[in-house]
Structures are given as C-alpha cells and as structure tokens.
Design a protein around this nucleic acid. Sequence first.
DNA 1: AGGAAAAACTTGACTGGTTCAAGTAAAGGG
DNA 2: CCCTTTACTTGAACCAGTCAAGTTTTTCCT
Lengths: 143, 143
Amino acid sequence: MEDHDFEHLLRSADLRVTRPRLAVLRAVRRQPHADTGSVLAAVRTEEPTVSHQAVYDVLGALTDSGLVRRIQPAGSVARYELRVGDNHHHAVCRSCGVVADVDCAVGVRPCLDASDTHGFVIDEAEVTYWGLCPACSTRAVTT
Amino acid sequence: MEDHDFEHLLRSADLRVTRPRLAVLRAVRRQPHADTGSVLAAVRTEEPTVSHQAVYDVLGALTDSGLVRRIQPAGSVARYELRVGDNHHHAVCRSCGVVADVDCAVGVRPCLDASDTHGFVIDEAEVTYWGLCPACSTRAVTT
DNA sequence: AGGAAAAACTTGACTGGTTCAAGTAAAGGG
DNA sequence: CCCTTTACTTGAACCAGTCAAGTTTTTCCT
C-alpha cells in the first residue's frame, strides 16, 4: 500500500482527504494492532497539532467505511489494523496482551456454520485465540 | 443447578461461602449474559446492602475460579454467564447488543487448529458471531 | 464453643478510555 | 473563488472499572 494510494482509498469511500486522515492511515500501517493512544502519538510525530478527538473521529470514520478494522479483545482497549476483508483472526496473549494475526485453517469463512443461531442473521464469525505469546510462555516455564 | 449446590461449588473452588457470593450466583443464573450493573441490581433485590465493589470482587473471583464465564464483545461492557466448560459460543446483535448462546457445529474445540499461531501457546478459541437478532433484523427489513 | 488468622466486604475516592457539545477551519463542487 | 458541507479543535463530561484503607465475616484450630 503506497502512501498516495491512501488518497484514492479515502476518495473511493466518499471521505475527504485530510492530513489527519492520511497520518492516521500511515500510523496504522506502521503499527498494526495499535491502540488509539499509540495512533495518536504516532500521528503527532508527523502532525503535531492533531487533537485526540480528531483521531477518535478518524478511526471511527475509517472503521465505518471498512478501510480499517477495529478489534477489541476482552480486557483490552480498541485496536486497529489496515488488513481488511481477508478473514483473518487474532491470537491474544493473556499475560501481556500482545496481538498477532492468524490465518484460519478451516477455510474462507471459518465456523460460520453455527448449528443454531436462534434466528440471528449472521454476517461475520470472529475468532479470538487466547493463550501465551512466545515471550510470556517462555518466561512462565523458566520461572 | 440447585440453590444449595452453589455452596458446594464455592467450597470446591476453595472460596468461602458468603451471602454476596450466593446472591451473585443466583443473579447470574437468573439472567444469563447480564452485565455487572444488572447483576448488582439483581443481587440487591435479595441482599440490599451489598456494595458494588463486592459484586466486582465476587465476579472476578468466580471468573478466576472458572465458576462463571466472563464475555466481553467489542463495544460492550463485561457480561457473565454460568454455563461453563461446554465450549459454546455467542451471537451478538450489532444493533441492540443482545447476546445468545450458540453451540458450534464444528466440534468440541472449533477452529482451534489455526494454521500458524506464531509461536503462541493457545488454550482457547473464542468465536463471536456478529449479525442481527431476530427482532432487529425484522425491523431493518420493514423499515 | 472460643479465638485467632485469613479472606471477604464496605466506603469513598479516583483513573483513563471514550464521548459529547459548541465553535472554528478546511475540503471540494459549482 | 465563494459557498456549503464535512472535518477538526477545544474543553468538559461520562462511566465502567479499579485502588486503598479500614471493618466485618468466615473458617480453622485448640
């Protein structure tokens, strides 16, 4: 994803192209799974005057348009990533909270065949793998 | 689950048997997927003097011991349920937030075979089905 | 039963991510 | 280049959840 593709991306979503939005997109590309605070800090390295509210607004708009994906594992604040529409899932470390991408082995739409959804109209199956990241699992064994 | 089974349940988890804990267990049994506020309200119908901190502590202790399960879909506060250890999942309504239980059709440990977990030691795969509940999907079509 | 130690609960203050509201600035179509 | 719409800034507020200190209750042991 080239820098100037972000502009097309925004236009194709009927969103105006602004410096804060481009900076947020670059920040999320730079640090996948970053939370809002990290995005804000990253944005301010290139655009020091951007407000925290702007970052919330931008991330909301980008999420609504499907340009970024918001994930929020239990006990975590909201995190964002650019990778979108490829049906991948996440592994979350119970100890340090770090998130990693996981491609589900089951297929394109894993587990979407729930036995009985009680009349719900399901459009997405989100899988979260819980466990320990390499660093934390090593530490647990050693200690 | 009989009322007086809760006492054995607590003892078997090395937790002391107290009125607040029994009241919380009854509340969660009465309203599956209730959030902390609802549990507090329900508890106070039978134990009016229980503090909100006690409910947080109790729910935390019960969750740590595996007697209740905490779920927290993105954008929702923490919710609790008694059904535990049977590997079921949840359908969440994008519109009203209501939660329903779903037994996964894939098997006992669905989707636990992630292709590449980047060295994570995974102990649980949590599946969240997103969509519209019967009431909200009907309303969406009608409107 | 009685008394001590440990665990649980009450009270009240506080935190921090997120949202609300009003006013200002910038984008992009005409 | 101007006007309308959308986006951003500023600053306050919200609220689920947590922290800390002190009191009460449970349970174990004699």
